[in-house]
Design a protein around this nucleic acid. Structure first.
Lengths: 226, 226
DNA sequence: GCAATAATTATTTTCGAAAATCTTTGGAAT
DNA sequence: ATTCCAAAGATTTTCGAAAATAATTATTGC
């Protein structure tokens, strides 16, 4: 693995997890020290991340962690719903046994992690399995473009979810596990109408929850403070 | 404008227009000579283009112009239809007079260029105005993510259309101008059902035409020969 | 001859310094 | 006090060479 690839992974990790706060300037000399490498691999990574909209760039004025905003969250969620519902319909139509088994397996692994408490309750494992479950639902859609856009939007919305997960303020009233179970069941039953309705409801609930959290905490658009 | 930005524009231009053939290796020393700059700005541009899937990259083995394939064309067209129809519905709902005027103006400019023959019949101007027209239809959708995906997919499919335009083998049976006119009219009438149906038909026609052209010319997947 | 290996060449990747550009600071003029 | 300009400093951008890796060619042993 080249240094540029390591830089990309590390920066992406740190941005999505919020260790590099939204809006924060990404100075090459700082990053060079932080990640222990020269400018070249860092600039390559930053350019990749800029193309993915995780960092902003201004000519001759360097890079910053892309800011968060409620507008962007709403947009990303709405587009996700459209794209993922289409992809889910296609998957339900085209998916084979292998696809179905992948969903069962991903859901099982996710639920194991949701159930864990104490030292085993690793939030990043949980997040990875959450991604894997949603990815498994769409795996049979046979559309590389759709899957790429799914990944982009997942990463974009993940940035809003992470701080919430870390704060662990998830309201008790909501049983996400049951939502995932019902979604998987409808999908495996090849009931596209129910499945897409559940998927949309799942995202709208999450979005409205996140909107409340962020709207309350940072009224002027989630702009970072440092 | 920095050298890296110039490199990006030039490479993107040359790739989309096919001056750099699909599959062709993009060696830094060659590019350095071709565009008269050092490695650094070229690598930045190549990384950006890689993120946009216009070039492929393999670790320690350099870059290539991304290959073309009928599968990718079909995928891109199908996803375009979904995304653009959604965006068109949103635009029709949200668009104001300014949006409508933009469509009228873009269509007018496009038709002027379609009508030109001889030395004024510049294919790149035509292409730019075709893009501007379709972009104008969606301009009011109020969704940056949707517009970004539109741009990505437009660029991806443009690569298939350009060789056809250059060959000027467009069959006489098809009146693209009339299609654009009807599409604009339905949109300005805020008739979302008709407009999206026309948009879908427009793309399916183009796609089926391109499929024939490419399928006949290069049966094993459009892989470049150099 | 042919496979395996060493040497050579070609290419990518990375570094460190130089050049270019932006930002801040300090001082002079009004 | 405020505005303007120049100097100093900080930062990005670019280059050219060195290092690392891949691909090719030559050589050896059988």
């Amino acid at each position: 693995m080249t240094l540029a690839e390591k830089a990309y992974d590390a920066l992406r990790h740190d941005i999505i997890r919020g260790e590099l706060a939204p809006g924060r300037p990404l100075r090459l000399s700082d990053l060079s020290e932080r990640y222990d490498m020269g400018f070249s691999p860092l600039r390559e990574a930053l350019n990749r991340l800029h193309a993915e909209r995780l960092v902003t760039a201004e000519s001759l004025r360097g890079f910053r962690v892309a800011p968060l905003s409620l507008d962007e969250l709403h947009d990303a969620v709405n587009v996700r719903i459209k794209i993922e519902c289409d992809a889910l319909r296609a998957s339900i139509e085209l998916g084979d046994d292998n696809w179905a088994a992948g969903i069962v397996s991903a859901l099982y692994a996710l639920n194991l992690q949701v159930g864990r408490t104490g030292p085993d309750a690793d939030i990043w494992t949980l997040e990875a399995r959450h991604y894997a479950f949603h990815r498994a639902l769409l795996a049979a859609c046979n559309s590389p473009w759709t899957l790429e856009f799914f990944e982009r939007l997942y990463a974009a919305t993940e940035r809003y979810r992470i701080p919430t997960l870390l704060a662990a303020t998830q309201p008790s009233g909501r049983d996400v596990q049951a939502e995932h179970g019902a979604l998987a069941q409808a999908t495996l039953d090849r009931d596209a109408e129910t499945a897409t309705a559940l998927l949309e409801a799942h995202y709208r609930k999450t979005a409205s929850y996140l909107t409340n959290v962020f709207g309350a905490n940072e009224p002027d658009g989630l702009a970072a403070t440092g």
